[in-house]
Amino acid sequence: AVTAGGAGGAPRDSPEASLDPDHLYNVLFIGDSHVGKTSFLYRLHADTFNPHLTATVGLDYQVKNLVVDNKRFALRLWDSAGQERYHSITKQFFRKADGVVLMYDITSEYSFSDVQYWLSCIQEGAEDGVPILLLGNKTDCAAERQVPVKEGERLAKEHQLMFYECSAASGHNVSESMVGLVRLLKVHEDKLKNKAEEVPKPPQKKKGCCW
């Protein structure tokens, strides 16, 4: 069995990571089973597609370093199990997430209708206004598409989410969507900082660095 578990450059070993990142974000991946969360992360890390990744049990973790707009970003990517049984583990992590990637499968209407459920989980558990990226995966399977692009766009607009369609299998929009998310996270962080400066009393503990 092959798993994509945690292979992404350990902070201690990877030369990339030894450069101190300017910004560090925790990003939680959620969505139904089989929508392709682990495959997406595997593509992001190894730039290949592995069709035999086993189901995620519990929570996996890896680090991805990106340079965006001449700034170094380290993303801590938390891969969660999609099945309901494991949601209690996932839920504990909502409050720690600086950003959430909510993924569905464009060939599965069910996974798209469950986006509502996942949004309610975010609302319940995560910080208010946490940046969310809605990802419709598996664009390579165009023939089996059940969820039109328009539907995804509509839902994203309604809930003010960033939206991309992508394919972990072909690599389509994988890094593009991540770069988009990083920019969004940066904007959100700046906003929080400004807010904290406005408030005269105890400035909020710097979020996102250490837990």
Binding site: G6, A7, Y61, V63
Partner: peptide, 14 residues
Amino acid sequence: LATDQMLLHFGNLA
């Protein structure tokens, strides 16, 4: 090591 680093540490040992 912090919580997440522990997860990474043992995950890499698998």
